[in-house]
Computed example of a mutant assay.
Amino acid sequence: MSIIISNISKSYKKVNALKNISFDVKSGELFGLIGPDGAGKTTLFRILTTLLIANEGSAKVADFDVVSEYKSIRKSVGYMPGKFSLYQDLTVEENLEFFATIFGTTIDENYDLIKDIYVQIEPFKNRRAGKLSGGMKQKLALCCALIHKPKVLFLDEPTTGVDPVSRKEFWEMLKRLQQKGITILVSTPYMDEAALCDRIALIQDGEILEIDTPQAIVKHYPKQIYNVKANKMYQLINALNDYKYNHSVYPFGEFVHYTDSRMDFNSKDLEVYLESKNLSSIEIEETKPTIEDTFMELAK
């Protein structure tokens, strides 16, 4: 195993950021930590990268203990924090050279690892990092995290605030890095990115809700979900929330995802009810669950 986490807990005064967290990440795996802001993702990453010490529990990264062997871990991992943290007054090339020097290596020595990423920012190598676009900053930060050829790569919400095209490109880069044998632990609030991981852990309020492959987690969803649509979205949500048989109601794109508490649900009954609430153009159809549906159900 590349990462072993055993009963980790962490508190900030009266806030329990992590509550008895345990899971492992296999060597060469692309593992996703999926949850909203404030779920505890960043706190866990800081513990695993030796920037914080847990109140309870233990963890190993690349076979090293995060407390007693922290120096060895820092040489063995790459860490890309959620906030862009490179030197904004240095150029692209100067940032890379700086981080390579810190780890006792050179850009040329591990160029094969960053080549596919670096060629995209090379035309801007003399531009200061602070003047780069969000997508280019992301690529530069990833290059700096990889420059010493780490065994494990930690990426804390790497695509937050990045445009959809850059997000897609970034995940394609991660898949290529995985093929080179690097273990990747990535956190994200985006449920659609969860499906791109080998396995995921759903986390909420410092607790792990479920750990499995994305396909298995979706398969475990216990109810039939319905896409519901009407002429007035806001009134539709309120009406469904007031419906005495509702189990769950929440917006999902142009639809509302609805589940019913009855075993013998009849969509015609619901349609009649919605019409009584002065709604029209009503559509009700079965749909398949997603990671987001599963998360919402578990978080209840």
Rank of each mutant, 00 (worst) to 15 (best):
D163V: 06
Q178N: 09
Q178E: 00
P123C: 06
C144Y: 04
L185Y: 05
K168S: 15
Q120I: 07
A195C: 12
K131L: 13
G135I: 12
H148L: 11
K75V: 05
A100Y: 04
W171D: 11
E169N: 14
G78R: 10
S133Q: 04
C197R: 06
D163R: 00
Q179L: 13
Y79A: 04
P123W: 03
T160C: 00
V119W: 01
D112I: 10
F170W: 11
F124L: 12
Q138E: 07
G130S: 06
A195I: 15
M191W: 08
D192T: 12
E122V: 01
K125E: 01
E97L: 14
F84P: 01
Q120K: 15
P123E: 08
E122N: 05
I184S: 03
D192Y: 09
V165G: 03
F103L: 08
C143W: 02
K83G: 06
G104M: 06
H148M: 12
K115M: 04
R127H: 10
V162T: 10
D156E: 05
P123G: 07
P189M: 13
G134I: 11
I114W: 04
M173F: 15
L140T: 01
S187G: 11
F103Q: 05
R176P: 00
I182N: 01
M191K: 10
T160V: 14
K139W: 04
S187P: 12
A195V: 15
N126F: 05
Q120P: 00
F84E: 03
C143A: 14
A129I: 07
C144H: 03
T188I: 11
D116T: 13
D116Y: 02
T106W: 02
I182R: 00
K151V: 03
T188L: 10
G181A: 02
E94S: 11
L196K: 15
Y190A: 11
T91W: 08
I107T: 03
P150G: 05
I182A: 01
T183L: 04
Y118F: 00
I147Y: 01
P123H: 00
D116K: 13
D198R: 09
E172I: 12
L196V: 14
D192Q: 13
W171F: 15
V186G: 02
R176A: 13
M80F: 05
F154I: 06
Y79T: 06
L142N: 02
L196G: 09
N110G: 03
V165E: 14
T101F: 12
L185W: 04
Y190L: 11
C144K: 09
K115Y: 01
K175A: 15
V186T: 12
K83T: 13
W171G: 06
Q88Y: 05
A195F: 10
L177N: 00
N110D: 00
K131T: 08
A129R: 04
F170V: 14
L146F: 05
Q88C: 07
R74E: 01
N95D: 05
